[in-house]
């Protein structure tokens, strides 16, 4: 069990080693975002800008316009939550090379309650032109996502979780931005998942193996979504379930529905938070209570 945020911190440190133009900005959240791993190694390229996310986003844009590759690190609720307009204008419209790291995605900030739970971040970032939106599924993949993001020129949003969770991929597993991964092949139902919902989906797929043949696809790149893999899978199975730790509107489920609605209308069920805010609780309790647990995925697969 390893956490995505450790993968983020280690990936960031490695990106800093590979490219001296990588700089890291945070709004008083270095440790919990794991940006501190970079700060310890490269103190001259690390800047704590205080609890001022709007300014931080603009500063990142200014640095990028001057040749730097800034990673902006905070909780996803605050960045891109609070500074969405700065992300829109100073970063996306200007099309600068800024990477936005949204820590504590989904129910990660469990006990902190609804204010700190990022359940809308994919919706608000997906709507922005020029921005790539990434939701890696585990520790190893988060590391790879950070390194790959640092290598491309343009704005990228990365959401990642706090909890120590099961590993789905290995260090050697292939990874390419924009390419969805079929982790388990199946012929009856396609499950498209992101983040921690990937391992939950795999658990369910295994459990149902004798009854239903489930294909599990990891959509780590939410935007631009891999239409080809989505359509190919659905043409084979004819049924779709999407799973995300996010509001049921505007995120992965919507992205998949948009693709299929135009190209290949298919019976579909979406697993996600049903247009409500969360509350305080244990992480797994929240996942269960808000309909994102393995039994919810199972139900969706059987009903679709």
């Amino acid at each position: 069990m390893k956490s995505m945020r450790d993968g983020f911190g280690e990936g960031l440190r490695e990106a800093g080693k590979r490219n001296k133009n990588v700089v890291v900005l945070t709004a008083d959240l270095a440790e919990s975002s794991r940006a501190n791993l970079f700060a310890e190694e490269f103190p001259d390229r690390f800047f704590d800008l205080g609890i001022a996310e709007q300014n931080m986003m603009g500063v990142a844009a200014g640095m990028a316009l001057s040749g730097k590759i800034p990673f902006v690190c905070s909780y996803a609720v605050f960045s891109p939550g609070r500074n969405w307009e700065q992300l829109r204008v100073s970063v996306c419209l200007t099309d600068v090379n800024v990477k936005i790291a949204g820590a504590h995605a989904g129910f990660s900030a469990n006990a902190d309650g609804a204010t700190h739970q990022a359940l809308e971040d994919m919706a608000i970032t997906r709507a922005l032109p020029n921005l790539m939106v990434l939701a890696p599924c585990d520790y190893e993949q988060t590391k790879k996502v950070v390194l790959a993001s640092a290598q491309i020129n343009g704005p990228v949003y990365i959401r990642y979780h706090k909890q120590k969770l099961p590993q789905v991929t290995t260090a050697d597993a292939p990874f390419e931005l924009g390419k969805a991964q079929v982790l388990k092949e199946g012929k009856d139902v396609s499950v498209f998942a992101c983040g921690p919902m990937v391992y939950r989906s795999l658990m369910v797929a295994e459990k149902l193996e004798s009854k239903v043949s489930v294909e599990v696809v990891n959509i780590h790149t939410i935007k631009p979504i891999d239409k080809e893999v989505v359509i190919r899978s659905v043409k084979k199975t004819g049924k779709v379930v999407t799973c995300e730790e996010h509001q049921i509107t505007g995120g992965l489920g919507s992205a998949v529905a948009e693709v299929l609605g135009e190209s290949c209308p298919t019976p579909m069920k979406r697993v996600g938070v049903k247009d409500v805010f969360g509350e305080s609780g244990e992480y797994e309790e929240l996942v269960e209570k808000y309909g994102l647990g393995e039994k919810d995925i199972e139900e969706a697969i059987l009903k679709v």
């Binding site: 990028a64 316009l65 040749g67 700065q86």
Partner: peptide, 10 residues
């Protein structure tokens, strides 16, 4: 102004 600050820092 934030963009300007970022440029000055760079």
């Amino acid at each position: 102004v934030s963009v300007a600050v970022g440029m000055a820092m760079a």
